[in-house]
C-alpha cells in the first residue's frame, strides 16, 4: 500500500469513528425517556382514597369481649376508620379484623390491576393504630392523607393515609 492508500484508510477509519459517535448521539436523542414528576400518581392515590372514604358500608363493626358492636348502617369508610382509630387508641385489644377485611377488599377493587395499597391511621405524630393490610410499602409509592379533628371534640385528632404503588405480579 502506498501513501495514498494509507491516507484513504485513515480517512475511512476517521469517517467511521465520526459516524459511530453520531449514531450514539442520534440513538440517545431518539430514546430519551419521558419526563415524569409523579403528579399523576399522587392524583391517582387521592382519587382512590376519596372514592374509598366516601363509600358507605353496612354492617361494619368490631368485637368487644365476644360481643359484636355494629356501627350504624350507611357509615362511610372514612367515618368508620376514624372511629376505629379513636376506639383502638383507648383499647387496642378490640377486634376490627372482619371490618378491616371488607375495607381492604373494597380498596383492592377500586385500584387498577397491578397496584397495591396500604391504609394507615393513627393520631397525628403518634403511633400507628390501624394498618390495612399488614404489608410493607416500597419506598416508591404515592400517598394521600388527611387529618381530622377528634371525634369527641377533645384529644389530638386522627390522621388517615392511603398509599398506592405499582406491584405487578
Amino acid at each position: 500500500m502506498n501513501a495514498d492508500g494509507f491516507e484513504a484508510l485513515a480517512d475511512g477509519v476517521l469517517l467511521f469513528v465520526v459516524l459511530a459517535l453520531a449514531i450514539g448521539a442520534v440513538l440517545t436523542w431518539g430514546g430519551a425517556p419521558p419526563t415524569d414528576d409523579g403528579a399523576w400518581g399522587a392524583a391517582y392515590a387521592e382519587d382512590v382514597r376519596l372514592a374509598l372514604f366516601r363509600t358507605p358500608l353496612d354492617g361494619l363493626g368490631y368485637e368487644d369481649d365476644g360481643a359484636f358492636v355494629v356501627v350504624p348502617a350507611g357509615t362511610t369508610v372514612e367515618t368508620f376508620l376514624r372511629i376505629e382509630v379513636h376506639v383502638r387508641s383507648e383499647e387496642p385489644s378490640l377486634d376490627f379484623s372482619a371490618a378491616n377485611a371488607r375495607v381492604a377488599a373494597l380498596a383492592a377493587s377500586l385500584l387498577r390491576p397491578g397496584w397495591a395499597f396500604l391504609l394507615v391511621g393513627g393520631e397525628p405524630g403518634g403511633p400507628e393504630v390501624v394498618r390495612i393490610p399488614d404489608v410493607r410499602p416500597p419506598p416508591t409509592r404515592f400517598e394521600s392523607a388527611w387529618t381530622y379533628p377528634s371525634l369527641d371534640g377533645a384529644g389530638p385528632g386522627v390522621r388517615l393515609a392511603f398509599a398506592a404503588w405499582l406491584s405487578p405480579r
Binding site: D47, V48, L50, A51, L52, R54, T55, P56, G74, L106, S109, L110, L111
Partner: peptide, 11 residues
Amino acid sequence: AASLIGDPTEP
C-alpha cells in the same frame, strides 16, 4: 376511582 352518587353513594 370515583364515587357514583345516589342513594347510597357507590364506589
